[in-house]
Amino acid sequence: MTYVLHDKRNLSVHRIELSPNGSLTWQSAAIFFGSIAAASLFIALIFLAQGYWPVLPFAGLELALLGWALWYSMRKSRQRDTIVLEDQRVVVEKHRMHSRQRMEFPRFWTQVRLEPAVHRHHPSRLLIRAHGRGCEIGDFLTDDERESLRLRLAELLAANPVLVDGKDTTL
């Protein structure tokens, strides 16, 4: 599973939290980066001591890129989508690296729609929308995870009769 789903029901409020899976902790990332940096810098410093200094800046640039990549990936794995279904409204909050978005939809008119991929290798898109406004959720999920999320949302929305994919899906 590449995401963590917290699906909690609290009285009349249903809350779904989505976040990508991250298998690295900050501490283990630091240890890992430290071990690579130590090896790379040790080599570069030996060459520096022999007078062959041009190895060092390349090693520094490369380690900077690796450090950024680790940091970026870990930050990205902390992005989060929260979907709260209340009696009258659906609240979607998207926490991304540099932004936070919040949207509210009237629950009765809310639709969930899964757009299939245009190419076989491209992702599907899960949209939640009402009254001409909408947003994409779970873009970090796999296709099947998106599909199962769509079914779950459809089930929850249908408990309060609504249109899903343009059809009345009241159970």
């Binding site: 609240v91 932004s99 936070r100 978005q101 919040r102 949207m103 509210e104 898109r125 949209l127 001409g132 406004r133 909408g134 947003c135 994409e136």
Partner: peptide, 12 residues
């Protein structure tokens, strides 16, 4: 709406 950026037509 919310205290954060409201987003209309986040996506067509």
């Amino acid at each position: 709406m919310s205290d954060t950026a409201t987003h209309t037509a986040d996506h067509d």
